[in-house]
Structure formats: C-alpha cells, structure tokens
Design a protein around this nucleic acid. Structure first.
Length: 267
DNA sequence: CCGGATGTTCACCT
DNA sequence: GAGGTGAACATCCG
C-alpha cells in the first residue's frame, strides 16, 4: 500500500509516541531487521530510551530516540503501522483511510516488529509479504528531496540530464523521494507527459508544470485518502480508456512496473 | 490454476 | 558510470 501519502499518515500516528519511553523491543522476525542487525542490537540501542522526534523523508519513516539513535521503518508494499493505545484493549489506530481495526484483525504471524512503551501502548509493524524492514541509523542521505514539497528548481536538478525514462527517474528514490507506481502514473497523466520519454528532454516549462503536478496530485490524493484515489485509478485495468478524453489507455512496463497512460494526451 | 500487485535491493548485463 | 532486467520476499485477489 504505502507511498508517500500513506507513510505521511504513519508519521502522524507515530508522532503520538513522542516523549514515551521504550520498555521493550519486540522482534519476532529477525529477518525483518536490516543493516544487518540482530534483536540484541536493537534492544540494546533502543531499550530505555524515549522518542524525541518523528520525521519522514519519502517513504522512510524515522524515529529518533534520546540517545541520538535513529530507527528507520520501511513499509514495502504491504507494511502497515498500528498504534495500540493501552495494553491491547480497545481499538487500534491505523491512519490510512482513518480505519479502525479490531485487535484481532491483524494476524499475529504477520507481526514483524513492535515498540512497547512504559505506558502500555505499542507501536506495531505488520507486513504479510516482508517487503519492508527496520534499520538502525538508515542512510536518509541517499534519498532525494521529498516529493511533497519539491520546488521547480529541486525537480530540475533531480532530473538533471538523465536519459532514463521520465517515470523511472521520478520513481528513483535517490532523485526524488516518495513517489511510487500509482502516484507517478497519476502525476504524469495530470501533467500530460509521457512516462517513456527521456527525462532530459523536458523543456523548462514542462519541468515547472511537472513540479506543480507533483504537489497538486499529492495534495488532492492526500485529501481523498490515499495513493489509490487518483482519477486514473479506476482505469488501471485492461481495455480501459482515458477518463479525460476517452481514448484507449495504453499499458506498458516501464522501469519494471505496470504503467497506464494516454498516448493521445501524454507526450 | 495463473498472473499480477502501491517497494526495495542486488546481481548481472549492455 | 548509466541504465535495464530479473529475481527475491509471501500473500491476496480476480
């Protein structure tokens, strides 16, 4: 599920544990710990500390504790973050879609990582496919500027003279952080730009238009409730047509990902 | 039964 | 060096 919009929701939920002290680190799946790290290292680094700040860059969520250690959370495609307030009784807060999950709804086999706090609350990562991970002191410096507040100048330097397909360049987290497959298709459709043209071929006006489309798309889809609420989303299936002009949509594989776009409008 | 799916990393080519 | 491809991860859904 998660792209920038969903992880921003997780950031908001995780921000609620600022000031809480970590009583226990739960690592039922050592494979989920990246770095590499093992359960003892995590427990050692985090146990007894309290959370001083929570921030996000792209799809990376970072919790800083008072020892200067940063815990990085990556969600992959199927990761979720849940906050249990108070010892497992009552509802579980999940920010995405404002949904509330009953405690029994999450299969325990999919629980990969949790922080248990002194007040009885727990911040829990659930990830059926194990595509996400947990890492101490993640290399946030490898990420490009966050897509949610990307300036025209920031986008311009991110694309540079890259000859990669425009969509591939936008999804490259080292260039721009936060855009995933659905968001990128929606952005390019709104900006009327072809996903397959080399990034370097964008004229200055195209670049500023694209920067605007990125900001607008993130704003609009955030308000609607997620990366899957785009205007193009219902058309992400074989044989569909462009929601704007009605021409048949094209489905290609760009950067290894399914790509839907309107050849008539996007160039 | 089969194919595809909102992500990342890595090895291996060209 | 830049860019592309395929594999791996494990489950769900149509």
């Amino acid at each position: 599920m998660p792209e920038l919009i969903e992880v921003e929701g997780y950031r908001a939920v995780a921000a609620r544990v600022r000031g809480r002290t970590i009583a226990r680190v739960e690592t039922p799946d050592a494979w989920y710990l990246k770095g590499p790290a093992d359960p003892a290292v995590l427990a050692d680094a985090l146990g007894g500390t309290s959370v001083v700040s929570v921030r996000r860059q792209g799809k990376l969520l970072m919790l800083e504790v008072d020892r200067g250690v940063v815990l990085g959370l990556r969600f992959g495609m199927t990761g979720r973050l849940l906050l249990h307030e108070g010892g497992g009784e009552g509802a579980v807060v999940d920010p995405v879609g404002g949904l509330l999950y009953a405690p029994g709804e999450v299969r325990s086999a999919h629980l990969r990582f949790a922080l248990a706090f002194h007040d009885g609350s727990r911040l829990v990562m659930v990830d059926p496919r194990r595509l996400g991970g947990v890492e101490l002191d993640p290399r946030a410096g490898d990420l490009g500027p966050d897509a949610a507040d990307l300036s025209a100048e920031g986008l311009d330097s991110a694309l540079g003279r890259s000859r990669a397909a425009l969509k591939s360049a936008l999804m490259d987290q080292r260039r721009v952080a936060g855009l995933g497959n659905l968001l990128t298709d929606e952005v390019l459709w709104r900006a009327r730009l072809s996903p397959v043209r080399p990034a370097a071929t964008l004229a200055p006006t195209d670049r500023s238009g694209l920067a605007g489309a990125i900001r607008t798309t993130i704003e609009v889809l955030s308000a609607r409730g997620g990366s899957h609420t785009g205007d193009l989303q219902p058309a992400r299936r074989p044989g569909s047509s462009c929601p704007r002009c009605g021409e048949p949509l094209r489905r290609d594989r760009v950067g290894g990902r399914s790509t839907y776009w309107c050849v008539a409008e996007q160039s």
